[in-house]
Amino acid sequence: MSKEVIEEGQTHGKDYVDPPPAPLFDVAEFKLWSFYRALIAEFIATLLFLYITVATVIGHKKKQDACGGVGLLGIAWAFGGMIFVLVYCTAGISGGHINPAVTFGLLLARKVTLIRAVSYMVAQCLGAICGVGLVKAFMKPYYNSLGGGANTVASGYSTGTALGAEIIGTFVLVYTVFSATDPKRSARDSHIPVLAPLPIGFAVFMVHLATIPITGTGINPARSFGAAVIINDKKAWDDHWIFWVGPFAGALAAAVYHQFILRAAAMKALGSFRSHPSN
């Protein structure tokens, strides 16, 4: 018996079934306190994420002249570590998205409704604006002169290169989210739900190591939008489209790859069709 068949049997032995897809529209969500609680959680989590990470960026740039600061490695740890902490804290309340690209990927996979996805994105963007606003309020003497943590295309790189970096970086993140939260793996390996925030945080960390020199690393439209709104200069807005198109394209690719290739959703649908021939 092949390993795949054994694993399938073990999974079925734990009564695993694919959860039904979320409805596209579910107006009943507006009547649930859990829906508004999740929006608050996404808002606060994104606020904290932007406050800590952008403050780290500004602090690093402030001390660069004195050969100090945390360095690019420290910045990457700040982003990855905060995602680990915040996903751990909010996963049971809102799912711990903290990123419109993650929300978009889960919408495409029918894990959340369209109403919840759009509401999450609005909450995330508002939280990001407030988080960066706090950084500016606390570090005002240095905020504007040091770039405000805004994402821009670094000198020497083309917009095409920056867009590609954002697509691949977001693909890595959203693919990790799908893999770490896969209900089939959760049914087979009980430790998976507990460990899920760790690989997600590490994915953010690794992507930052690779793409900070190119774009400052977006892979999160709310993060880029919040910083652009508060700094509000021409360069940040000129490049800003990259930090929406890239992450959303990367999330789309990750959703298709995980759902239709790794989880074989298309083959399952075809098999179901063949097993119920028309009369």
Rank of each mutant, 00 (worst) to 15 (best):
K3P: 06
E4N: 14
E7V: 11
G13H: 12
K14Y: 02
K14E: 07
K14A: 12
V17H: 15
P19A: 09
P20E: 12
A22E: 10
A22G: 06
P23W: 02
P23A: 09
P23C: 14
D26C: 00
A28L: 02
L32Q: 14
W33Y: 04
S34C: 10
L39M: 13
L39T: 10
I40A: 15
F43K: 04
A45D: 05
L47N: 07
L47R: 05
L48H: 02
T53P: 01
T56L: 03
H60R: 02
K61F: 13
A66L: 15
G69Q: 11
L72G: 07
L73M: 12
G74K: 09
I75R: 08
W77Q: 07
F79P: 02
M82K: 04
M82L: 15
I83R: 00
F84D: 01
V85K: 00
V87T: 06
V87G: 03
G92R: 15
I93P: 06
G96Q: 10
N99F: 07
N99G: 14
P100W: 02
A101F: 06
A101N: 06
F104C: 05
G105Q: 05
A109V: 00
R110F: 09
K111P: 00
V112A: 02
T113H: 02
I115H: 09
G127S: 04
G127R: 10
C130A: 15
G131Y: 00
L134Q: 01
V135F: 08
K136R: 14
A137M: 14
A137Q: 13
F138I: 13
F138P: 05
M139L: 15
L146M: 06
N151W: 06
V153R: 05
A154C: 02
A154V: 00
G160L: 05
L163N: 09
G164C: 08
I167V: 15
V174K: 01
Y175M: 10
Y175E: 02
V177A: 08
F178H: 11
F178S: 00
T181K: 04
T181V: 06
K184V: 01
R185I: 04
R188H: 14
R188T: 07
S190R: 08
H191V: 13
L198S: 00
P199D: 04
F205K: 06
A210I: 10
I214G: 01
G216K: 02
G218N: 11
I219K: 03
P221S: 04
R223I: 06
S224N: 13
A227V: 00
V229S: 04
I230S: 07
I230F: 03
I231K: 12
D233W: 07
D233R: 15
K234N: 11
K234I: 13
W237K: 11
D238L: 08
D238G: 01
D239E: 10
H240M: 06
W241A: 12
I242Q: 03
I242H: 09
F243G: 05
F243Q: 03
F248T: 14
A249Y: 00
A249P: 01
L252F: 10
V256Q: 01
Y257M: 08
Y257S: 08
H258F: 09
I261K: 03
L262P: 04
L262G: 00
A264G: 12
A264S: 13
F273V: 13
R274T: 11
R274E: 12
H276A: 15
H276W: 08
P277T: 14
S278R: 14
